Simulated scan of single mutants.
Amino acid sequence: MVSHRSPRHGTPRRRAPHPGAFGLGVRATAFSAAAGAVAVLTAAPAGAEPGAEESPAALNARVDRLYTEAAQATEEYNATAERVEELRGQVERAQSAAARDQARVNRMRDDLGTLAAAQYRGGEVAPSLALFLSDEPDEYLARAAALDRISSRQAARLREYRHAVRSLEEQRARAGGKLAELGHRREALRRHRAAVQRKLGAAQRLLNRLPSEERAARERASRGTGRPAAPGAGGPSSRASAAVAAVRRAVGSPYAWGQAGPHAFDCSGLTSWAYAQAGVSLPRTSQGQSRAGRRVPREQALPGDLVVYGPDAGHVGMYVGGGQVVHAPHPGARVRYDPVGMMPVAAVVRP
């Protein structure tokens, strides 16, 4: 007789590791996890859904981590989108060059055909006509020259035609290579977009599990308590001052990943937009902006300098004086003032 033993009761349920409590009144709710930027996204064990008993502090910490990783994925999306735009322009130029070469080849072929027809009517088998019947134009030119059956003028025209054909083939090859890379980059863009959306969706589901008073506290914190810094001595240039004026006007605008204004921004979108208002072009990503100027010591920061955060340069804001930056923190928050030291500063860059 087979005995059926009941499963033991009282086995403790596995709980998701506690990522650490984050105070809701802290200024940088969105990037508090980036201060220690480590982090595997999933705080819960593999295959386990966090239990309902997870504390609000743990939920808040996991939301912050998701937002940090969503911001990193957003910068990857921005970098890929920037490359896609570059490639699109290169493809268009390569295709235009190929079209010009094709038109040139067509004109030269027509000219040579006209010459061949005239010679044929005169009773001659024209070298140019023989060229079109030959699979190896180089061999034909060598034989024709050896037999003294082609004039120097005709030889020059045939060589020019041969060069034009080769140029056309090269242009087509370049355009084809750019098109292939463009296809790969567009697929990468799709993957980055999906990654951002997954992380934001997961963050929203966690937020929905918070008690209403905790959600209200996060909403208050997301608006920030920073105030405009007192006007300082101005930036290192009139362009920097214009960029500071622009970024101040953006305070209160919503965060939106992949956006660079004028009504919504992500972090690098905000700083690139602000400098664009001053007539300065900056790279689209925080990593690119970290290399877009001269690095200066933090204590020498002037209004208009870019403050880059995190070991991977995953976040950027603009110093506006008075120990404050203006930045676009994370989804659900608005462009706001925060202390310059809200996160570990990786670099201060003067465009």
Rank of each mutant, 00 (worst) to 15 (best):
V63Q: 10
A70K: 06
C267S: 14
R162E: 10
A347P: 00
V349E: 02
V105H: 08
S167P: 04
A70W: 11
L210D: 07
A48S: 06
G122I: 00
N60E: 05
G293W: 02
L87D: 14
G323S: 06
R13D: 12
G176H: 01
S128H: 05
D111Q: 15
V348L: 08
Q72T: 01
R190I: 05
S55C: 11
H192W: 14
L282R: 03
A81D: 09
R294T: 15
A48G: 04
F132W: 09
R8W: 09
L168I: 08
Y140I: 04
P50F: 04
V38W: 11
H9Q: 13
L168G: 07
G341F: 06
N208P: 06
Y337K: 13
L87F: 12
R107C: 01
L158E: 14
R109I: 02
H4Q: 09
G321T: 12
R190P: 04
R350W: 00
R209S: 10
G235T: 06
R121H: 12
Q289M: 15
A130C: 07
R249E: 15
R65F: 03
L200W: 01
L282D: 09
H18L: 09
R336P: 00
P351S: 02
L129N: 07
A103Q: 15
E49I: 10
D110R: 15
S96I: 10
Q102Y: 02
P297W: 01
P236K: 01
A347V: 04
R157Q: 14
A216S: 15
G232I: 09
S268M: 06
R109Y: 00
H330P: 01
M108F: 09
P311W: 07
Y161Q: 03
S238T: 15
S241W: 05
R157K: 06
P351V: 02
A46G: 05
A175Y: 06
Q204I: 01
R193C: 01
F265R: 06
T42R: 15
L24T: 14
Q289T: 11
L115E: 12
G224W: 06
S253W: 03
A34N: 03
Q72S: 08
A52P: 04
G332W: 03
A256R: 15
G232R: 11
Q154P: 02
A117R: 12
G224E: 07
S32W: 12
A94I: 04
I150P: 08
A194S: 12
R295G: 10
